[in-house]
Amino acid sequence: MSIFRRPDYQSDATQFINQLKTSKPELDKQQQAGRALLWDKQVDRQLWGDYRRGQVAQKPYVYQTSAD
């Protein structure tokens, strides 16, 4: 090791997160459960494809009324 090497820097945020994880070891499981509740879902690709094919293109001037 070089004599000029500085100790590894850790920001205040990193130190806080590391301290939080050591004080609450169940935090990782709670985060994974929350993610599974909102984000980790099975996607039916055929249903989404049907939905996208059924969309109608939006007109360029949405708020302009037709003068016809």
Rank of each mutant, 00 (worst) to 15 (best):
P7W: 01
D44V: 02
D68Y: 14
Q46R: 07
F4Y: 11
Q42K: 12
Q32G: 02
A13N: 11
R6N: 11
I3G: 15
M1Y: 08
I17K: 01
Q42F: 07
Q42P: 06
A57L: 02
F16D: 09
Y51I: 01
R52K: 11
Q19D: 15
Q46E: 09
Q46N: 07
Y9V: 03
Q31N: 14
F4G: 10
V62D: 10
S66L: 14
S11M: 00
S23G: 07
G34N: 14
R52N: 05
A57R: 01
Y61N: 12
Q30P: 05
Q19H: 15
K24E: 13
F4L: 12
R5F: 06
S66Y: 13
D28V: 08
R5Y: 08
T22S: 09
G49D: 10
P25W: 04
Y63R: 07
G49Y: 04
V43F: 03
A57W: 00
L27A: 05
Q46D: 08
Q19T: 15
V56K: 00
A57Y: 00
T14W: 06
A13D: 13
A36R: 12
R53Y: 01
S66T: 13
A36H: 10
S23E: 14
F16K: 10
P60N: 00
L38K: 03
D50T: 02
A67C: 15
A57Q: 04
L47A: 08
G49C: 05
Y9W: 04
Q15L: 10
A67E: 15
S23A: 14
Q19S: 15
V56C: 00
A36V: 10
P7M: 03
P25H: 03
R35S: 07
W48Y: 15
R52D: 03
T22D: 08
R52H: 05
S2F: 04
A36D: 14
T22Q: 09
K41A: 02
S23W: 09
Q64A: 07
Q58Y: 06
R53E: 03
